[in-house]
Design a protein around this nucleic acid. Structure first.
Lengths: 341, 341
DNA sequence: CTGTTAGCGCATTCAC
DNA sequence: GTGAATGCGCTAACAG
């Protein structure tokens, strides 16, 4: 391993000079800078982060916390995509990205504690948001920089987060359905304890209200992201005496399941029933018909969160921010006009 | 920040004793251990990794390299799942996991160099395998510990990797089709420069050969993982004068697209045509019909690779290993018996 | 069984 | 503009 001393010896200057060259200290003569840099390249010098961090107190690393991996939601293509977004800026800023999952909430908390106490990272990005989350609490108490992707449950105004305007998104997409003549519109969402779901649903309701449409309780169902649980719910929805002619679904992944079920029951999308959803994950292009969905710019969600976090870590007094990533409707083939009989 | 000294002072012992307690050195009396540990807990001591690593030369961290993120393949649910597997063992072993993506090959190489030269990590897991990969080459030259998930392109016997027996998997699943009476079986695979694809295809061919079935060139097509490129290919396959009655598809994700296309063309799976694929990603349960697929145990692939890597980093002389994770067929509804006319 | 000493690689005073 | 000295927090000899 080639150290600062080695290159000091090689160039005949002192270690501190080399250190200053690395930091690009303006008080070093251009000549020696050039000389030193040449030697660094020639000998293949690379700074040792541990030594550097030990003294500098900054790790140039951020931690990314995934939801507990017991959570099937992890399978959502959402995550690789945020990770990509985060990675793009950490890379550009020469930051390092530490990933932490954990099967249970306790495991996650333990990892987070280790990371902050052991000074592994300068800040954290939470890829989930839960009520009474011990991790969030811990971070807040220690005043450790963090940002949430999504909507915080508590202290919203004091915690910087990057999110979509899910209410508006829900409203817009529902309005699109209404414009197409639909009047009986259902909503299928994931677990109700997620803000995303709730917000999107509120938007859906608001659109119905504004259009003077009936807001039927029976039209709103909540089901697990994946798997069978939802089957019965959807079936009962279709068995209603006046079944919906269109459905707003809170996540592309759920749409996939619903789509299959529908076709299974002999209902064709969009001929017999229309479908819209959210996220614009690659899946939504592959399905037949391709899904009309809201693009929430997942990549950008990640990139912006990383940017905000890094800002926060370099300037501890950076105020809490709320960053809203714009969304837009991607029109594809899962919606058709409804002609009232 | 509470250091070793603080707790030394608090308990009236020397810093080294505290250090020894941390390392659980057997030559420390149970009494002082207890005393010291109590103080650590009380004062909230947590070791500073940077200090520790600076002297100990081991980072207790591993790097995980994703394929270049330009690659759409990153969207494959395969990745979150391997990550989960890796995370489970890093967590258990108190290791840390650093993630690195990068848009281009050069970016990735740069990150890897930074990681090894800056002694960020003790070893790396590569989640891809490519011909003439500069990263692999670099790691090999520097004799830096790494393991590949998948099959290495060069020096197979000298590089430890964890993989499935994709040849057998391809053979078995094809045999299943043959047992069901199918004689005209096609193969749809991803890019041909991936070993996974090739191996699975070879297995498919071997099964045909053994059964004395014709191995038609026109029955084998290769298409991008996602998107439209494949549409025409599949359509031409169906337009053949004797179209296949069953298709082996190299990845669940591709199956999803093919499935939609098929239903689109009015062909019902499995009534009109049977489908089998690989990976057993959660998607394969959701589709209608649910896919008969090969479970390759992605989670285990990740976990074993992490285990192997950690072993290798603690014992540098650990010989190169090849770890084969068993697969098994998951029978679902995308296959039906073929009754020859 | 425990304390003392030294040093890991680097950034940063303080001198000159 | 540059060098010498100091210390970050910890582990690892070497003593005793």
């Amino acid at each position: 391993m080639v150290t600062i001393k080695d290159i000091a010896k090689a160039t005949g200057v002192s270690p501190s000079t080399v250190s200053r060259v690395i930091a690009d200290n303006p008080r070093i003569s251009p000549d020696t800078k050039k000389k030193v840099r040449k030697a660094m390249k020639k000998l293949g010098y690379h700074p040792n982060i541990h030594a550097r961090n030990l003294v500098a107190k900054s790790t140039k690393a951020i931690g990314v916390i995934l939801p507990s991996s017991a959570d099937k939601a992890l399978q959502n293509p959402f995550f690789p995509e945020v990770l990509r977004g985060i990675g793009s800026v950490t890379h550009k800023e020469q930051y390092t990205m530490m990933l932490s999952s954990g099967q249970t909430e306790e495991e996650i908390l333990a990892e987070v504690e280790r990371m902050v106490y052991g000074s592994y990272v300068d800040g954290m990005i939470l890829l989930y948001s839960r009520m009474n989350d011990p991790v969030t609490q811990f971070l807040r108490e220690r005043e450790f920089p963090f940002v949430i992707v999504g909507k915080p449950y508590e202290n919203i105004s004091e915690t910087t987060h990057v999110d979509n305007d899910n209410f508006s998104a829900g409203k817009e997409i529902t309005e699109h359905l209404i414009e197409q003549g639909h009047k009986k519109i259902a909503f299928i969402g994931g677990a109700r304890d997620l803000f995303v779901t709730v917000d999107r649903e509120e938007g859906y309701k608001a659109a119905l209200d504004e259009a003077g449409l009936e807001n039927k309780e029976a039209y709103q169902i909540h089901t697990e992201f994946l798997k069978s649980g939802g089957r019965e719910a959807v079936e009962s929805l279709l068995a209603l005496e006046t079944p919906p002619t269109a459905i707003v679904i809170s996540d592309d992944l759920i749409s996939l399941g619903v789509l299959s079920m529908l076709e299974d029951s002999g209902l064709h999308v969009p001929k017999d029933i229309s479908l819209v959803s959210f996220n614009n994950v690659y899946l939504s292009e592959i399905t037949r018909p391709a899904l009309t969905t809201i693009d929430i710019q997942i990549y950008e969600l990640g990139a912006q969160s990383a940017k905000a976090l890094i800002e926060k870590t370099v300037n501890k007094k950076e105020p809490a921010k709320r960053i809203i990533i714009p969304h837009n409707v991607i029109y594809r083939e899962s919606v058709s006009e409804y002609k009232s009989e």
